[in-house]
Design a protein around this nucleic acid. Sequence first.
DNA 1: GGATGTGAATGCATTCACAGCA
DNA 2: TGCTGTGAATGCATTCACATCC
Lengths: 221, 221
Amino acid sequence: MEIFRPQLIPDPTVRRLSLYLRELESFLSRDQKTISSKQLGDSLGLTDAQVRKDLAYFGTFGHPGVGYSVPDLLHRIRQVMGTDHTWRALLVGAGNIGRALLAYSGFGPKMLEIAAVFDADPAKIGQKLCDKPILDIAKLNEVVKANDIRLAILAVPTNAAQDVAEKVVEAGIKGILNFAPVQLCLPNTIEVQAVDLAVQLEQLAFLVSLNSMSREGVRHP
Amino acid sequence: MEIFRPQLIPDPTVRRLSLYLRELESFLSRDQKTISSKQLGDSLGLTDAQVRKDLAYFGTFGHPGVGYSVPDLLHRIRQVMGTDHTWRALLVGAGNIGRALLAYSGFGPKMLEIAAVFDADPAKIGQKLCDKPILDIAKLNEVVKANDIRLAILAVPTNAAQDVAEKVVEAGIKGILNFAPVQLCLPNTIEVQAVDLAVQLEQLAFLVSLNSMSREGVRHP
DNA sequence: GGATGTGAATGCATTCACAGCA
DNA sequence: TGCTGTGAATGCATTCACATCC
């Protein structure tokens, strides 16, 4: 088994690998068996050099004069990303965001399995969210250990987020997808991805302001 | 060919400005009137130098030996970000994501106003989503022009996204927050922010795999 | 002392350019 | 000819270090 040092893949590249996956799936579904770095780059607004550099981080398997085999490339990227198997996750927070997530179609069919749904509200416990029973958050440890779950999705109110985060970490969770707009303070062995709508909206507002200014002329206050 | 855009402030800095805003609001609500770059940085896991560089992009208003005035800093950042006033946006897609967004508390109270909700499904039109009437998507132009709306939030199925995006652009929208997992192809005068859950989940999975592979300990020494 | 603002240095990511192979 | 893989060059963002000011 060959040595593979994934820790030296730059962060921006990892983000793009997800995009490559999606695009490659789309090409494959159109029966395109081979693809060039230029074609893949164009479909995502990237240069061909960028694509080749990204792919070169984890092997050399392109064919000069031809391009890359779409199925091979898909398989290899999935392997590198750790998404060649389904990830089980638990969802904490049976509110609107939780419901939207359970119904979300953007995840590939075999990508994510919500193994359990938790909530702290006694009124919700025992009810169902999209056909999944809502469990008492007190049962967290039990469920995590029994099912070897490593990922948690936090869709709880802002003021509960830090508390719940500590609970899931204590239960053995290694990665958190956090929808609450707070900076979680956790051991650095735990990975956190923040889904931060306010940040994205503000960035959008900033860019739109910028564009309309450059058209109207810049003011000097 | 590129469009001219006076990008005075680097992109990574703009993203952090949103985080500064949130943190500053929190400090202000605890009646802290002044703050140092070190304190602000620590609360977000950034260095003091980074914070000072970021703030220096749009003025010099810190007080040596003292720090920054929290209210002044808040006001200035809001000004720069274009969030010193409320942004009106339209929401297209009255599904689960749309509902979650309307109920989302992460936006400051005066940050975003969903001015109208649209859907293409005749069964939904006329009904309400969180007390907001669902309008026929055919009325898009009319509403955008009458209310001078510049932002759109797209929470529609993947296969409808490109089509709807073109419609809202034609109606005069300048910025799009896109929840569908596709790369929108639009004129480059239109700003697009993608909320891409699959990408974030995959990145999380990758990082967790990495950690469990190598027991080399801390990544932030 | 304590903290800012900023040139200089460092570290990374992107782009360029080209050798080499089908 | 077409395309990959990769050292070299470029461009940016981050960090350092220190002059400056309260």
